[in-house]
Structures are given as structure tokens and as C-alpha cells.
């Protein structure tokens, strides 16, 4: 459940924060959300990763469709990566790793802050 929350919140963060902030600010944001929601490690990684990766993937596909621009293909050729489709994939994968590691870091950060339960019950 937390993993799904994290995915959705990350996606929203990318959609609303990314247009006005660079990618690294989004990464910090994902880390914080992940720390707040506190899923498990895999959940943090996958939630942050899918949230950012799928959003970047979706945004690049969306831009390609609404603009019908030849630029993705031109950039693909220029970078020696074939077509624009490849670049859409690479953008998604890059977003996945940036978001994923941010989410995971957030979870581990929360873990560091978390007090040991034994202190509560055993005084």
C-alpha cells in the first residue's frame, strides 16, 4: 500500500515540482516523501523509481505526441542511439534509477532516525 502511495506521490511531485526545479531537487523531494511514508527498502526503491521513471517516460511520450517534432529522432541520431524511441526508453530508465535510489535513500534515512522499539517498552 505504502509502495503504491509512494509511486503516486512521486509521480505528482515530478509533475508539479520538476517544471520549476532541477532533477536533483526532485530527488531530494522523493527521498523526503519516501522517509515520511516509510515503506520497506524494495518498496522505497520501486516506488520512487516507478514514480519518477514512468512519469519521465510518460512526459517524453506526451511531448512527442503533442508536438509531432522530429527532434527526438534527430537527437537519437546525433547521440548515436538510433531513434527517438530509444531516447524515450533511456529517459524512462534514467528517471527510474534517479527516483529509485532517492526513494531507497529516504527509507534508510528514516531507519537511521527511528529509535529502537526496545527503548519504548523496556524503559
Amino acid at each position: 500500500m505504502r509502495f503504491i502511495f509512494l509511486t503516486v506521490l512521486t509521480a505528482l511531485l515530478v509533475v508539479f515540482l520538476n517544471p520549476v526545479a532541477p532533477f536533483w531537487a526532485v530527488m531530494i523531494g522523493i527521498g523526503l516523501i519516501s522517509a515520511l511514508l516509510y515503506p520497506n527498502g524494495i518498496g522505497g526503491f520501486m516506488g520512487g523509481g516507478l514514480g519518477m521513471g514512468l512519469t519521465w517516460l510518460g512526459q517524453s511520450i506526451y511531448l512527442g505526441i503533442v508536438t509531432s517534432s522530429p527532434l527526438p529522432d534527430r537527437m537519437g541520431e546525433l547521440m548515436g542511439m538510433g531513434t527517438g524511441m530509444t531516447l524515450i526508453g533511456i529517459t524512462g530508465v534514467l528517471g527510474f534509477f534517479l527516483g529509485g535510489f532517492s526513494g531507497w535513500t529516504g527509507v534508510l534515512f528514516r531507519k537511521v532516525l527511528q529509535k529502537e522499539p526496545k527503548n519504548i517498552y523496556r524503559g
Partner: peptide, 30 residues
């Protein structure tokens, strides 16, 4: 990872600023 994708590596430009759909080359599709 964040640093590697924000600095140029040889002739390759910084990847994340270039591929970020909100700031990178995708925005030049309009």
C-alpha cells in the same frame, strides 16, 4: 549517480539536464 549524470563525461554532455523532460531537449520539441 546524481553527480555523474549532471557533469559532462568526455564529449558526452550532462545526461540528466539534457534528458529531463521538463528542462532538457524534450522541451525544444515545441
Amino acid at each position: 549517480l546524481a553527480i555523474l549524470v549532471s557533469i559532462p563525461l568526455g564529449q558526452i554532455p550532462p545526461l540528466a539536464p539534457l534528458l529531463d523532460p521538463n528542462h532538457g531537449f524534450w522541451q525544444n520539441s515545441f
